[in-house]
């Protein structure tokens, strides 16, 4: 095979892997949108918050140490222990569920029946709040997240692909991060679990009922408020997974919350209401972005990754406003 083709292949593969990461965030959006019709802008910040909490628990940071020190003039930052990764993950999950419960109790309950734009704004408010809260709780410095996921390139793959290349060409093998492969596997597992959960459990069925029709679901005795707590908890869980993956990839820092913005075009492509759509949309955006950077980027000065996805989504919208897998939009007066 010629090196050009191998480069192409490598770009596509890496694009697919990045796409999976986008899909992870988009999944959380879709879950909440389906169940409550809320466009949850805070999903990215939730991922950041989950990752911060995980690292904080794992390294035994004292929550709010900054604030406490500022008020009481004390000087302590760490409890002095390190928790095993598994315990920290469970602890973070508990925090995310508690967060879901509180958010429903304090905010969502009062905003029932408001217009979607108001709910959307509330989640932007939540995003700001969580961002400040997370920084206040755990500090704003960049942290490394390590729970034992393998990372770095694979020598085996590099060796194999080098042999594929044409004799005498200067191709040094494919570079694919092991972390990305793990992320892809996790994403597949996550989708499987979520699908099974929503198809074969009573709670899952209730979730689907609520997604279909709020009022009908309520009339057969499904508690909307419980469902919302559950959905936000699941979204918190998905955020945690996304936070772990992105955190392990690029460190836990503020920019993590910006991946939420990257997930938006994914949603548009896939449709707001479709879980498979989130996955496929993520893959398309991931591949498209990388290929565009490789082939189109040089002509316009590079760094087009930032907006390319949006423009793709925009053009796509003109032809299919409901997304790839979204429900058909029917309008009545």
């Amino acid at each position: 095979m010629s090196p050009g083709f191998l480069y192409f292949l490598e770009t596509v593969l890496n694009g697919l892997m990045t796409g999976v990461m986008y899909s992870l965030v988009a999944l959380g959006f879709v879950l909440i949108f389906k169940a409550s019709g809320i466009f949850n802008f805070a999903q990215g910040v939730m991922a950041l918050f989950a990752a911060l909490t995980l690292v904080g628990l794992q390294t035994g940071q004292v929550p709010f140490s900054h604030l406490i020190n500022a008020i009481f003039g004390t000087e302590f930052h760490h409890f002095g222990w390190t928790l095993p990764a598994f315990v920290a993950v469970v602890g973070t999950l508990v925090v995310m569920v508690a967060f879901a419960y509180l958010f429903e109790k304090l905010v969502l309950k009062h905003l029932v029946n408001q217009e979607p734009i108001i709910l959307f704004m509330a989640t932007i408010g939540l995003a700001y709040f969580l961002e400040g809260f997370g920084d206040l709780m755990w500090g704003a410095d960049i942290k490394a997240l390590d729970i034992g996921i393998p990372s770095g390139g694979s020598f085996w793959l590099e060796d194999v692909t080098r042999e594929w290349a044409t004799e005498g060409s200067d191709y040094f093998g494919m570079y694919i991060d092991k972390l990305d492969v793990v992320a892809a596997l996790v994403a597949v597992a996550l989708v499987l679990v979520l699908t099974l959960f929503s198809q074969y459990t009573a709670t899952g069925r209730a979730l689907r009922a609520v997604a279909d029709d709020h009022q009908a679901a309520m009339s057969v005795g499904i508690s909307l408020r419980n469902i919302w707590v559950i959905v936000w908890s699941i979204a918190g869980f998905v955020a945690l997974v996304a936070g772990i993956m992105w955190g392990a990839k690029s460190g836990v820092q503020f920019s993590l919350s910006l991946i939420a913005l990257k997930a938006l075009p994914v949603l548009i492509l896939g449709g707001f209401t479709s879980i498979p759509g989130a996955i496929v949309g993520g893959l398309i955006i991931g591949v498209g972005e990388k290929l565009a950077e490789l082939y189109v980027g040089p002509f316009v000065g590079g760094a087009i990754e930032n907006w390319f996805a949006y423009v793709v989504a925009l053009v796509f919208l003109l032809f299919r406003p409901q997304g790839l897998f979204g429900e058909k939009i029917i309008e009545r007066v």
Partner: peptide, 18 residues
């Protein structure tokens, strides 16, 4: 620290207003 509290308060206030 003030910046963190500020952004948090702004967020909370927005929700409160809504």
């Amino acid at each position: 620290l003030a910046a963190h509290v500020e952004i948090m308060t702004v967020g909370a206030l927005i929700i409160f207003f809504l």
